[in-house]
Design a protein around this nucleic acid. Sequence first.
DNA 1: TCAATATTTCAACGATTGTCAAAATATGGA
DNA 2: TCCATATTTTGACAATCGTTGAAATATTGA
Lengths: 102, 102
Amino acid sequence: METKSAVKMLAALAQETRLAVFRQLVEAGPAGRAAGELAEVLGCAPATLSFHLKELSNAALIEGRQDGRFVIYAANFASMNALLAFMTENCCRASSADGCAC
Amino acid sequence: METKSAVKMLAALAQETRLAVFRQLVEAGPAGRAAGELAEVLGCAPATLSFHLKELSNAALIEGRQDGRFVIYAANFASMNALLAFMTENCCRASSADGCAC
DNA sequence: TCAATATTTCAACGATTGTCAAAATATGGA
DNA sequence: TCCATATTTTGACAATCGTTGAAATATTGA
């Protein structure tokens, strides 16, 4: 994974609402959740949520699919795994006395 | 780890220069690196670097110690491990077909 | 086609971020 | 003490971000 992608993903997750959205989608699994459902659960305006969904989508952390009148979003687990791999590889290399969980 | 701390850490790493700083410090290991050295390597003004070091410091991802005229910064590996643990726990739970590296 | 529902885009805004020169602060050596 | 070096703080600035109401778009069912 390139540094730029990693920064983009980290930035996408570095915001309370978006992190909450992503956790909801992780919990929901591949079935995902409708945008409106997420807005209600998280208590934010539809426009606001849409903005955040786009942000997460641009970072490739989630994907949306049209399902009738709804748009269902689901976490992209492969991307998240790639991010974790990047972080353990690039930010955890040194063998310190503290030990390294990676 | 609390969500707020996680967001703070993610935000600290979600910036090209700061991610570069952190990677330098990971590579340097517990011995760390002087602020000026980092500024030179990364090619940014001392004031700019100082701003980013503070940001990383506030997120508990790095720690500085005075050494004579220099201030030596080192990565806080325990914090980084805590962040990775948080991410694997909170953002990776679902058992998906894609599999989950965690 | 038309109305109802779901979502996104647009426009505007205040708040935060990233940058850096200049000034302030801290340390060590002469 | 005084100077030179290392770093941080301050102040200013443009750029980006997060929020939301209103308008636009998409889809379904009557």
